[in-house]
């Protein structure tokens, strides 16, 4: 019971602190502009690539699938990469990781809280980008399967958060590459999960790798829920229920792996004196 209370305390503090770090560096108005410009610019790059080359421009049947994949990928960058960055940020930048460990709270809960703050920021970006797509790019969302969205979205977010903590554990042990671990993984997922193009275009070893990664199924479930159809022919044989089952399995696996690996990493980091490491990189 005490551990649960400490975990909840850590979660609350992590969420509050994460939100402050993300948002209080400027005025709310500027923060709002910042939240709009970055994600919309990312989507507009794809828009212009389609306008320049694709037959039918934005009416190309691939575009809504690509738009949706890219929009929800914002969660992958923010949550997965963001949580692992927390370790580097707290330890190297603010020099406060050791104090977080000394505080009467559960550090794992604290990291989950930081992930929650990242999720909130990403949600703002996703909603803005979706609205932009619907209003200006005429992307038509059919909401064919709201149940799939309601179950699939939080499941995927939870999986991202736990895998993010797993990466945070890895970051605890790394001196010179910790800051790029999350970004490299997120960049790899953009490519391997077929976020913006059909998986069938990838060489077969990479396609097989992509089919083993949870975000592939998560993004496909969201496409089916919001557009009525998926992007990858390889997954067309799976029913919606099977997709959810795979996502549930991936989330459970994510929890188990992240708890196990993070605890082991914490032990090693404490033994080697890495919790207050300053590499100045």
């Amino acid at each position: 019971m005490r551990r649960l209370r400490e975990a909840w305390q850590g979660f609350k503090v992590g969420t509050w602190l994460g939100w402050q770090i993300e948002s209080n560096w400027t005025e709310p108005f500027l923060f709002a502009i910042y939240s709009v410009i970055k994600p919309v610019a990312g989507v507009l790059i794809l828009v212009f690539m389609y306008l320049v080359v694709a037959q039918g421009g934005l009416q190309n049947p691939l575009f809504p699938q690509v738009f949706l994949g890219t929009t929800f990928y914002l969660y992958v960058v923010n949550v997965l990469s963001g949580i692992s960055w927390t370790v580097t940020d707290d330890r190297e930048h603010y020099g406060m990781l050791k104090y977080a460990y000394m505080a009467p709270m559960h550090f794992y809960g604290y990291l989950l809280g930081r992930g929650m703050a990242k999720t909130l920021v990403a949600t703002i970006s996703v909603l803005i980008t979706l609205a932009f797509g619907i209003v200006f790019l005429r992307v038509q969302l059919s909401f064919r399967n709201p149940g799939l969205l309601l179950v699939g979205l939080p499941l995927g977010l939870a999986a991202l958060a736990f895998y993010g903590i797993l990466l945070a554990g890895v970051s605890l042990l790394i001196a010179r590459h910790g800051w790029m671990v999350g970004d490299v993984v997120a960049g790899g997922l953009y490519l391997l999960c077929g976020t913006a193009f059909p998986l069938s275009l990838l060489p077969s070893p990479f396609r097989a790798l992509g089919l083993g990664l949870p975000p592939t199924y998560w993004l496909e479930a969201l496409r089916r829920a919001l557009l009525g159809q998926g992007l990858h022919p390889e997954l067309s044989a799976l029913s919606d229920a099977q997709l959810l089952l795979i996502l549930t399995g991936a989330t459970v696996l994510g929890i188990a792996l992240s708890v196990g690996i993070f605890r082991a990493a914490e032990r090693v980091a404490a033994r080697r004196g890495l919790l207050d490491m300053q590499t100045m990189y």
Partner: peptide, 11 residues
Amino acid sequence: AYVYIYRAIGA
């Protein structure tokens, strides 16, 4: 990823 996007739309 961008190369594959271009390939997907037949550039």
